[in-house]
Amino acid sequence: MEKPNLNYINSLAREDDSIKKILIDVIKTEFPEEKQDYYESFSKNDFKKIKDNVHRLKHKISILGLENGYKNANAYEHNLRVNSKDKSEIFEKTLTTISEYLKII
């Protein structure tokens, strides 16, 4: 399975560690909140909110360089438009991968 990376963040920070820290910190703060929002909407079967939450999370997925994860999130978001949760498992695996990664950076 593909692993997250900081290539995009490094390209933005241009070797400025303070900028890099700001970017990582905001993802570390926002990602768990969005993940929690996602699981709450998922448990309530609120498809519109699930879709909105997936949309927000997929930006983090792309920032962390998970190309396949991003494609899966797109497909999942598309399925949610027709009230289908198909691809939720693979999407949630990506969320777990990111959570683990954010603990070590």
Binding site: L12, R14, L23, V26, I27
Partner: peptide, 17 residues
Amino acid sequence: DDEKTSRVILKTLCDQT
């Protein structure tokens, strides 16, 4: 932008330009 990460990224890009 409703997403803080996006706002921080855009702010960074704006500062650089």
